[in-house]
C-alpha cells in the first residue's frame, strides 16, 4: 500500500500526533500510540473526529479496539476512505 492516499493519511496523522504529544520523539509507523506516545483515550477519540473531518468519512470508534500503532491507525483510516 503505497498509494498517495495512504501517504497523505500517514503524513496527516504523524503531524497531528506530534503536535498532540508535544514530544520531540520521532514518530514512525511502528510507534505505539499508548505506550510510546501516551495518547489517552479522550485525545485519541478527539483525533479521530479531526481525521473524519479531514477526509469527510465516518470512523467508528469501536474499530479502534484493534489499533495500537500508528500504522494500524493509518490502515484503518485508509480502508474506510477507500471504501467511501
Amino acid at each position: 500500500m503505497t498509494d498517495s492516499n495512504y501517504d497523505e493519511i500517514m503524513q496527516l496523522l504523524c503531524d497531528r500526533l506530534s503536535s498532540l504529544t508535544n514530544s520531540s520523539a520521532q514518530i514512525s509507523p511502528e510507534t505505539n500510540l499508548i505506550s510510546q506516545l501516551s495518547i489517552d483515550s479522550i485525545k485519541l477519540l478527539n483525533l479521530i473526529m479531526e481525521v473524519e473531518d479531514a477526509f469527510d468519512i465516518s470512523i467508528p470508534i469501536n474499530a479502534l479496539a484493534d489499533v495500537q500503532t500508528v500504522r494500524e491507525l493509518v490502515d484503518l483510516v485508509h480502508k474506510i476512505k477507500s471504501a467511501s
Binding site: M49, E52, P60, I61, N62, A63
Partner: peptide, 12 residues
Amino acid sequence: CILSGADIIRFK
C-alpha cells in the same frame, strides 16, 4: 454502545 456492537460515532 460498546455492548451493542453497533458502530459508534461521536459528535462534538
